[in-house]
């Protein structure tokens, strides 16, 4: 006779298919640009696995995806999203619009509702109307469009800083003035760099390197980007949105 106790309580499998690989990602939308950034450290527990494992990926000339959480799931998810975008390109002879990519990501995440990709996604880029946009997702696909979002290990350190600096929470404008609706690109880039240097100081899983992607709307000049050190253009097509990457070192301790 089978053990009655065992039948009543199914045995627990002890293999845990998930892990947490640290790091932090962040995206901020401007009026006609978008910045998507992430650090490059990959860790497990107290060990640094590598100092350079990208978490931010160019999907198209107008869309950049940042993934954070369980690295194996993250890489697989990005691979599958890129595959779907390639199929779309072959079927429709154009790149998928940003809001469509956002809905695609929600569907792909929810499809795995009962064995989720353990990944927080932030999608940034330029909408069809030329505005900068950021979409943020939870691991099972709930999503919304926002002006800024931080996710990952140091999200609890970075998000309140962004709430204050981007949304001007707890700030009162000087008499007779009002807060700007959108910040200029150089300001946003400094806020991003400051966020990551601060997160590196206070969180052990953040550091080593910083990768910032900048997406510019169609027809927008480079204005405000000229002086940026070590900027590299990644744009693939002519006369459309443009993508750039800026790399910086972060502390390695």
């Amino acid at each position: 006779m089978p053990d009655m106790a065992a039948l009543a309580h199914p045995q627990q499998r002890q293999f845990n298919p998930y892990s947490e690989n640290g790091g932090t990602i962040l995206a901020i939308a401007g009026a006609d640009f978008s910045v998507i950034a992430g650090d490059t450290r990959q860790s497990e527990g107290y060990s640094i696995q590598t100092r350079y494992a990208p978490k931010v990926f160019r999907l198209t000339d107008r869309a950049v995806l940042a993934v954070n959480g369980f690295a194996a799931d993250g890489n697989m998810f990005v691979k599958k999203v890129k595959q779907r975008l390639e199929w779309y390109r072959h079927a429709h002879a154009k790149d998928m619009p940003l809001r469509a990519i956002a809905r695609l990501i929600q569907t792909m995440l929810y499809a795995r509702r009962f064995f989720p990709y353990y990944v927080y996604n932030i999608l940034g880029g330029i909408e069809e109307d030329g505005t900068g946009a950021v979409y943020s997702f939870d691991p099972v696909g709930s999503y919304e469009r926002e002006a800024c979002r931080a996710a990952g290990a140091a999200s609890s350190l970075v998000q309140p800083f962004l709430d204050n600096q981007i949304y001007f929470k707890n700030q009162r404008p000087a008499a007779g003035t009002s807060h700007p609706a959108h910040l200029p690109l150089p300001t946003v880039l400094s806020i991003v760099i400051d966020s990551f240097t601060s997160a590196t100081e206070r969180h052990i899983e953040v550091g080593d390197g910083l990768e910032m992607y900048v997406v510019l709307a169609k027809g927008r000049t480079l204005q405000g980007l000229e002086g940026i050190r070590g900027m590299q253009e990644l744009t693939a097509t002519e006369d459309g949105e443009r993508v750039f990457i800026v790399r910086r070192d972060l502390k390695r301790d």
């Binding site: 998930y18 990959q42 497990e44 060990s47 696995q49 590598t50 369980f70 690295a71 194996a72 890489n75």
Partner: peptide, 18 residues
Amino acid sequence: LLGTTYSASTLATGYGSY
């Protein structure tokens, strides 16, 4: 075993990683 991947100029598994 989890499918986690990474590369670096030095790698070590198990106790070697510590």
